[in-house]
Design a protein around this nucleic acid. Structure first.
Length: 148
DNA sequence: CGCTAGAATGTTT
DNA sequence: AAACATTCTAGCG
């Protein structure tokens, strides 16, 4: 698995995929195939982050991005971190903007929680798949966490 | 004191 | 060389 995308419709999704993987040919998974099983696991991982480690992820990114993404996975569900905090986690306190860049480059939306990152004033700034979706994810996670 | 405008900053394409 | 899902500070009302 090299990417996990959100989308409201097929057209938007494939368009996004094409943009990210310009040279790739888009194909669909057969129902009941191995890939289909992974999709199930991925969806399950939204609620249980531990399951994410079962996924055969094949993420491609620069060294900097990998640092950021690793830091992101340390952010507990139901909480948020600021771009600056993440920047400090990877020992580059002044690279806040760069961190934001790396978040946007993250291909695996749910496995790496790029939606838990907000601005220092607490405002939800941007999200590749829509700020609306980001807010919903956050409130949802907060509920899940407090319910536990 | 609260707000706006502008510079600083690191990484990617 | 340009663009960005930020942040910090100085200046103004």
């Amino acid at each position: 698995m090299c990417a996990i995308f959100f989308g409201d419709d097929d057209a938007g999704l494939t368009a996004d995929l094409q943009k990210r993987f310009a040279k790739a040919t888009i194909a669909r998974a057969e129902h009941g195939s191995d890939f289909d099983i992974w999709v199930d696991q991925t969806l399950a991982a939204i609620d249980r982050p531990q399951l994410a480690s079962n996924l055969p992820l094949d993420i491609q990114g620069t060294a900097f991005q990998e640092q950021v993404w690793r830091a992101l996975q340390k952010v507990p569900a139901g909480t948020t971190a600021t771009y600056k905090e993440v920047a400090e986690m990877i020992a580059k306190p002044s690279a806040t903007r760069a961190v934001a860049n790396a978040c946007g480059a993250n291909p695996v939306s749910v496995v790496i929680p790029c939606h838990r990152i907000v601005r220092s004033d607490g405002a939800v700034s941007g999200y590749h798949w829509g700020v609306e979706r980001k807010r919903k994810l956050l409130t949802r996670e907060k509920k899940l966490c407090t319910a536990k």
